[in-house]
Design a protein around this nucleic acid. Structure first.
Length: 577
RNA sequence: GCGCCCGUAGCUCAGAUGGAUAGAGCAGCGGAUUUCUAAUCCGUUGGUCGCAGGUUCAAGUCCUGCCGGGCGCGCCA
């Protein structure tokens, strides 16, 4: 967190020397290699270039005015004009002592808290949640957690698929083919079976398809029977969603599905037409994007020839509602990358519709989960993998391992550890890859104890906790009273302490770029630093007095940052493994 | 055909405004354990960053072309 202060000073000096400089480009970041220092800025090279100045001369001028005494002993100019900063022993000790006293956990809350709506998960009514929902759910939840930790106000909204043409078929299937007993036993399974059957039947029989369309029209017209069935389908589905979300520890502030916006769709269409932003075309009403190369060939339909709206209309209505209701600074949509074109249409249309709106719209998209054959992840029989089954298997596999490694624990304890490790492993495997790349699903990799996995991080956490089971309460209390003039001597202590300082910086980067994988990599490095510290610096043996307390504090802080970081990823921790 | 994304070690992947000698895990090889729980740690082998140009003090990262792969292009959501 000290880089923030250095950065502020650096900005002040640059503002004095180069009043027209864009200070947003002046950043202080960790050095890629500790041999250069702890933090660096390469902003001067770019600034010098713009002004045709000699970068090293500019750097010399900047250093002449730069006072970073409270945090660094010196500043060096290196290479083509890098500024390298090395944190002083005193500043490092003071920051660690403050954290040990509970004053902060290496995070500074945002100066200007924002309001962000995060739209994620969005499962469909009457269908099982499957592996395709997992990335959106886990990514969205993690982003919401990161933003909240930084002090922003977040509204999570589950825009469930509870409206649309599929309900014509579902209603018809419900009326013609529903097995009540099966529905009682496994509502989602029965609705899925029924839908598949009626869908195939409609494909084969045009007259049947017409009947389905009539059922849809009746629903849309408010037919009481169809409405009642529709509501029942939603209620049954919501039970399933809630079960999954509870297992995943995911919470939504709002569940405003597509149907919530039905009453506003006509008005949206009217507004677009009246503003000249949409026009009739082959019986439908469309928005054209002749001035946007990517969308030129893709006019968006906001009203079909049969008078019904489309999901584009719903998404626009949703946007307007969110804007009006929460005045967000930012709306984040977490969906599959295949919807990029759709969101370009939505964002472009919205800008034309509400040109004064300042809200930042972000489509945070992600790639597919693949099987080890490189094709979309499926069961052996070729079906989509149901989320509930996936989570069951994760827990079962983790249970086998815990039972194997730690047979002395009670079954209840092993089950609980398996739950945390299993669910954590699935989540971590999903958050670790760059979200935009496809990744290959592998049980063995995600549950491995070596490498960048949830079990490895969770184990590191249990090691930090293990120490505290052997320590008196008085000693624990003494961590809060560390003198702030102690000096860390062991290289492993210093490396660990310095790494802890960067926690906030990384959470900030996660929130800015919507990339939780930065945090995964940070935590993996942290666990590595802790492991080396743990191997080389005895905490409870050989050392006494302040040195012992300092090591205890480093253990505690490493554990707390691991726990907090995992919490941002939506992963629980356990004291034993 | 048009558009978006990807191509980094044998395999799976990182690589934060372009920034210093491209990293990790697995696999392979070699070490460390009467432990603060070894579900650990240390060392080591391994790369023309798909190919060819270009911009720049500096390119895995930006631009152009080509090769190879994935996805999208519905009055479905």
């Amino acid at each position: 967190m000290l880089h923030i202060f250095i950065e502020q000073r650096l900005k002040q000096v640059i503002a004095e020397l180069l009043p027209d400089a864009n200070l947003e480009t002046v950043l202080v970041r960790p050095c890629p290699d500790a041999k250069f220092g702890d933090y660096q800025s390469n902003a001067l090279m770019a600034l010098a270039k713009e002004r045709k100045l000699n970068p090293r001369q500019l750097a010399t001028q900047v250093i002449g005015k730069l006072d970073v005494k409270p945090w660094c002993d010196s500043v060096e100019i290196a290479g083509a004009g890098f500024l390298n900063f090395r944190i002083s022993a005193v500043a490092l000790a003071r920051t660690i002592a403050e954290a040990a006293a509970g004053k902060h956990l290496f995070i500074q809350p945002a100066e200007k808290p924002r309001v962000a709506v995060v739209d994620f998960s969005s499962p469909n009514v009457a269908k099982p949640m499957h592996v395709g929902h997992i990335r959106s759910t886990i990514l969205g939840d993690s982003l919401a957690r990161a933003l909240r930790l930084l002090g922003h106000r977040v509204i999570t909204d589950n825009h469930i698929g509870d409206w649309g043409t599929q309900f014509g078929k579902l209603l018809l299937g419900w009326k013609q083919d529903l097995d009540r007993a099966a529905l009682e036993k496994d509502p989602i399974g029965e609705m899925e079976r029924m839908y598949k059957k009626i869908n195939a039947a409609c494909d084969a029989d045009a007259a049947l398809y017409e009947t389905a369309k009539q059922e849809l029209a009746k629903l849309q017209a408010g037919d009481p029977e169809n409405l009642a069935i529709w509501r029942q389908m939603i209620a049954l589905s919501q039970v399933q969603f809630d079960t999954i979300y509870q297992r995943l520890g995911v919470h939504f502030d709002q569940t405003l599905g597509e149907s919530f916006y039905n009453g506003q769709l006509k008005d949206v269409v009217r507004q677009f037409v009246e503003a000249g932003l949409a026009r009739p075309d082959e019986g439908a009403i469309r928005i054209f994007f002749d001035d946007v190369p990517e969308l030129k060939e893709h006019p968006a339909v906001i009203q079909k020839a049969d008078g019904a709206a489309t999901y584009t209309t719903t998404d626009l209505a949703t946007l307007a509602y969110r804007l009006e209701t929460w005045q967000p600074d930012e709306i984040i949509y977490v969906t599959d990358g295949r919807q990029q074109l759709h969101f370009k249409e939505i964002f472009t249309s919205f800008k034309r519709w509400k040109p004064a709106a300042k809200v930042k719209l972000a489509h945070v998209w992600f790639g597919s989960i693949l099987g080890d054959d490189g094709k979309p992840f499926k069961t052996r029989s070729g079906d989509t993998v149901k989320l509930a089954d996936l989570l069951d298997e994760a827990e079962e596999r983790a249970f086998k391992t815990v039972s194997d490694k730690n047979p002395g624990l009670s079954e209840a304890e092993r089950k609980e550890i398996a739950r945390i490790v299993g669910i954590g492993a699935v989540k971590y495997a999903d958050l670790l890859p760059n979200r935009q790349s496809d990744y290959v699903f592998s049980w063995d990799k995600m549950l491995a104890f070596n490498g960048n996995t949830a079990p490895y991080l969770l184990y590191a956490y249990t090691r930090t906790r293990g120490i505290f089971r052997k320590v008196t309460a008085a000693e624990i209390a003494s961590m809060a009273q560390l003198p702030d003039d102690f000096v860390l001597r062991a290289p492993e202590e210093i490396a660990l302490a310095k790494h802890l300082l960067n926690f906030g910086l990384v959470v900030q980067a996660v929130a800015d770029d919507c990339r939780p994988n930065y945090l995964c990599n940070y935590l993996y490095d942290l666990a590595g630093h802790f492991a080396r510290f743990y191997e080389n610096c005895p905490v409870l043996k050989e050392v006494e007095g302040t040195e012992r307390t300092v090591r205890l504090a480093l253990c505690d802080l490493a554990g707390r940052v691991l726990q907090q970081g995992l919490r941002v990823l939506g992963i629980e921790t356990t004291e034993h493994m």
